[in-house]
Simulated scan of single mutants.
Amino acid sequence: MLGRPPHLVNAYLVEDVLVDAGTPAARRRLTRQLDGRRLAAHVVTHAHPDHFGASHAVCDRYGVPLWAGRKDAEAIATATPVTGSGFAAAVVSRMRMPAPHPVTRGLVEGDEVAGFTVLDVPGHSPGHIALWRDHDGVLLCGDVFVNVLRLGAPPKFLSYDDVRNRDAMRRLAELRPKLVLFGHGPPLRDPDRLRRLAG
């Protein structure tokens, strides 16, 4: 958890890999939690500033590589997120952009990260990825779903392609995950609820 209220913005340490890094303002809180731990790499689920906000600071401080979905790599490396049109573009243009950082590994479907399999689930961003661990049903879904106030899709105006994100929601729900970890919101242990929502 990187913000207030709890679970508003989440980052996860999976073995020795940090998944997401919150906003630029999360840097101090994140490094306080990471200092003294072994860190081998940092993965970003998608190129939005509330997920790679502190990525440059983390990679610089711990000397670790940054990995992200191949189609989001340039957006992170240049700190220029790809958004939908109209209102979304206007909102993002007013946000404080994180420091850019080079992506050293562009992740694709089937890659392995800390015991998880990379799933290509574009829609919220062009290169959005999720991480799936089949043997125990744990899913890190980034922002394909959000669980703040209610479980649902991210706001349409914040997604690059809402129709494709709905396809990604259905794909992830069909996995019937036993534990879903969101970019925003508390964990969920109810695969049927996820399927009803995505159906």
Rank of each mutant, 00 (worst) to 15 (best):
2 L>I: 14
3 G>L: 09
3 G>N: 13
3 G>H: 04
5 P>A: 00
6 P>H: 03
7 H>V: 00
8 L>R: 02
10 N>R: 10
11 A>Q: 05
12 Y>Q: 03
12 Y>S: 07
12 Y>T: 15
13 L>W: 02
13 L>S: 12
14 V>G: 14
14 V>I: 13
15 E>Q: 08
19 V>I: 15
21 A>Q: 02
21 A>Y: 01
21 A>V: 11
21 A>W: 00
22 G>C: 11
24 P>Y: 00
24 P>E: 07
24 P>S: 06
25 A>L: 14
25 A>P: 04
26 A>C: 15
27 R>A: 09
27 R>C: 13
29 R>N: 07
30 L>T: 09
32 R>L: 14
33 Q>L: 13
34 L>Q: 08
35 D>H: 15
35 D>K: 05
36 G>K: 01
36 G>A: 02
37 R>S: 07
37 R>T: 09
37 R>D: 03
45 T>R: 04
47 A>C: 02
48 H>F: 02
49 P>D: 10
49 P>T: 10
51 H>Y: 04
54 A>W: 04
54 A>D: 05
55 S>M: 08
58 V>M: 04
59 C>K: 09
59 C>Y: 06
59 C>P: 09
60 D>Y: 10
61 R>E: 08
63 G>R: 15
66 L>C: 11
66 L>D: 06
67 W>P: 03
71 K>F: 12
73 A>S: 15
73 A>R: 12
74 E>W: 01
76 I>K: 07
76 I>L: 14
83 T>A: 10
84 G>F: 06
85 S>H: 06
89 A>N: 09
91 V>L: 15
91 V>Y: 14
93 S>V: 06
93 S>H: 04
96 R>G: 12
97 M>L: 15
97 M>R: 15
97 M>H: 04
97 M>K: 14
99 A>M: 13
99 A>I: 01
101 H>E: 00
102 P>C: 08
102 P>D: 09
104 T>A: 13
107 L>M: 13
112 E>W: 02
113 V>Q: 12
119 L>W: 00
121 V>I: 09
122 P>C: 11
124 H>S: 11
125 S>Q: 05
129 I>A: 12
130 A>H: 01
132 W>P: 12
132 W>G: 13
132 W>K: 05
132 W>T: 06
133 R>T: 02
134 D>W: 03
134 D>V: 08
134 D>I: 02
135 H>C: 00
136 D>K: 04
136 D>A: 02
137 G>S: 09
137 G>E: 10
139 L>V: 03
144 V>E: 02
145 F>Y: 12
145 F>A: 11
145 F>G: 00
146 V>C: 10
147 N>F: 00
149 L>S: 08
149 L>W: 01
151 L>F: 12
152 G>M: 05
153 A>L: 09
154 P>K: 10
154 P>V: 02
154 P>R: 09
156 K>T: 14
157 F>W: 08
161 D>I: 11
161 D>Q: 05
163 V>P: 03
163 V>R: 11
169 M>A: 13
169 M>P: 07
170 R>E: 07
171 R>Q: 11
173 A>W: 03
175 L>Y: 06
175 L>I: 13
176 R>E: 14
178 K>P: 04
179 L>P: 12
179 L>E: 04
182 F>S: 07
182 F>M: 01
183 G>T: 11
184 H>G: 13
188 L>E: 03
188 L>I: 04
191 P>R: 01
192 D>R: 02
193 R>G: 00
194 L>S: 06
196 R>V: 15
197 L>H: 01
197 L>S: 08
198 A>D: 08
198 A>C: 03
